[in-house]
Design a protein around this nucleic acid. Structure first.
Lengths: 351, 351
DNA sequence: TGATCGGATGGGAGCGATCCCACATGGGAA
DNA sequence: TTCCCATGTGGGATCGCTCCCATCCGATCA
């Protein structure tokens, strides 16, 4: 069932060269011969070997995607899943096949495989440890980083505009009249979490009138961590008269909501909650989560596009690519004590 | 930065053959020469080209994973994401790299790429259309199907024991005293949805005493479909005195819960809800969803293991591999009108 | 008429590895 | 001493393809 170009050529009564010309569509071939060869190819379900082609062309038309794996292996990470989807789609459109790899802190094994000239380029996702990046740098393979945690200036980055997004959160919550906040701040080594928090603080400072902001650091960014942190702090939250929680990503926020709801604290009735990312489950949760959407699809698409330019050795590929974020208002936020519009209205207001 | 074995050999002052022996660890090489070659390899960060190796060995050490893509591209599908994760991990452990592809009904393009001798074997996931399967069959590539929708006897299948799982659902709900049910039945062309429903009906029949089962077919299996269907039927549901909903997968069930909750129908207070799959969000939702867990990780691991055996041309690879399902009781179910233990208790019972 | 050129085709080299075979050495068995 | 075999090494062929170069044919042009 597996044929090669020599067989095709023989069966069509031509030379390998001619068969090759028919397949690639390059060079002169008479109409008649072309048809003859095509017929044989069709009949035998012949597909030229990608391996052999890669051998001579020095191009595999494969790209590698490496995702950091925290704790339990998670490609099914709600955010990175979306990103990978977008990358897959874009890669396909450009004729690339995608190798997916997850990598952990120390083991460079799986990354090493890709360095065996298996790929034309590499997309690195998330908080990959420095050693992975350093390792990749050693090889002669174009690469770029999406939503990365370093700001290594040598590395091409695609990032969401997290700081601006953080400001949006502040504006929204402040605009609704909230003045006393709890922030569940994900791992601050991670660029995104850090900037979201900074943006939030800056936004609040600009608007003025915030009475209190408590920041609860979370060493990890998963659902359970948001849940646990909020569960521990629920009583304090009520006692301190806080009315809004901002978690620096959606998974944390979902955990927060669940902890609140389980304790009979109504969301958004008693507490407004906001997240960041617009993960799929954000819209599904009851109540649906108000959040900031990052245009993951565009990021994925651009990642492939830029990588493709790198592979083709085009000049002038931008080093830093930022993506605007968009406020998505859903059901988890509601006017707070300082009333709606602008401010001043007494802490009243119907359901 | 990219070297080849010839360079290594020259720098170490040996022949290509000897260098090759050092690299592969096969054949006789003197201690001294081995060290010399190793040193050069180390210094130059040399990695043998996987492409060239594949060329001669006729083995790529790559496997392809093809997932059906419904509507919006979704590899980040909650269930398949988990599965892919497991496959990735297992593949890595066995020294395979994986190509991830999504495919839609008609386009065989992306699948075609993999047929260009890019992979040693193929894992097909979910309800791939028949034409994809037929297409794959034409080529000389080992493959198997996970959670597939056909029962083509020529194809090696890995499936969850959906019928048994369906029975578990019936037993659990019946045991809690529920007697009037609504079933949101996902696409019946899909083997899983179909068998889950069948199992549920059979289980109920066996137990006896079920007063009424309404079956609401859903043409798709997503969250929104569960939501919409339940929203439409909420009034009827109450009027008919039904107390439990079984949706044939978790996403549908989550949609159901949200629709119920939004209408002020308490879950599990007024209605118990069950799903199937134990998707990540099932545990996160408030209330957490009672469901049936499929051992996705083992399925993924076995998929790679069996495929590996196929690739090595081992005999006796089992055609049908079923995986037991496990009841996961969480917060979305609660005793119904016919009381708890066994039955008989009058339709009373505190909060 | 011979040179030139576009169309059409075939043959050889080479991509980077592996593997088979040839060959060289030295020690132990016959 | 001769033979054999384990050890150690090098060279050529090969995997399936593309690409360069050579060749050939017929038509056009000087």
């Amino acid at each position: 069932m597996n044929h090669n170009i020599k067989e095709i050529a023989e069966l069509a009564g031509v030379s390998r060269s001619t068969a090759s010309r028919v397949i690639s569509g390059k060079g002169y071939v008479s109409q008649e011969v072309r048809q003859r060869v095509t017929a044989v190819i069709e009949e035998l379900q012949y597909k030229p070997s990608a391996v052999a082609r890669a051998m001579v062309s020095q191009r595999t038309h494969n790209i590698g995607v490496i995702v950091f794996r925290e704790w339990q292996p998670i490609v099914s990470h709600p955010l990175y899943g979306k990103l990978i989807d977008a990358i897959l789609l874009a890669a396909e459109a450009r004729g690339y096949s995608v190798f997916l790899k997850t990598d952990q802190e120390m083991s460079l094994r799986s990354t090493g495989y890709l360095m065996e000239q298996r790929v034309d380029g590499l997309i690195l996702i998330s908080r990959l440890r420095k050693n992975v990046i350093d390792y990749v740098k050693k090889f002669n393979v174009p690469y770029l980083m999406v939503n990365g945690s370093t700001d290594d200036p040598e590395v091409i980055h695609l990032v969401s505009n997290d700081e601006e997004g953080g400001q949006r959160v502040a504006e929204h919550l402040h605009g609704l009249g909230h003045r006393r906040f709890l922030v569940i701040a994900g791992p601050q080594e991670h660029r995104s979490h850090n900037l979201r928090l900074e943006g939030f603080k800056r936004g609040l400072a600009k608007l003025g009138g915030a009475e209190n902001v408590e920041i609860a650091p979370s060493p990890e960014s998963g659902f359970e961590h948001g849940y646990r942190l909020m569960a521990e702090r629920a009583d304090d939250f009520l006692r301190d008269g806080r009315t809004a929680v901002f978690a620096t990503n959606d998974m944390l926020a979902l955990g927060v909501m669940k902890a609140l709801l389980e304790r009979g604290i109504d969301v958004p009735g008693r507490a407004s909650v906001m997240g960041f990312d617009d993960v799929a489950s954000a819209a599904m949760f009851a109540p649906a989560l108000t959040t900031v959407r990052v245009d993951t699809e565009r990021m994925g698409r651009d990642a492939v596009g830029l990588l493709d330019r790198l592979i083709r050795k085009e000049e002038g590929v931008p080093m830093l690519n930022e993506y605007a974020s968009e406020l998505i208002v859903r059901q988890s936020t509601r006017p707070g004590p300082s009333g709606h519009e602008t401010a001043a209205a007494p802490p009243e207001g119907e359901g």
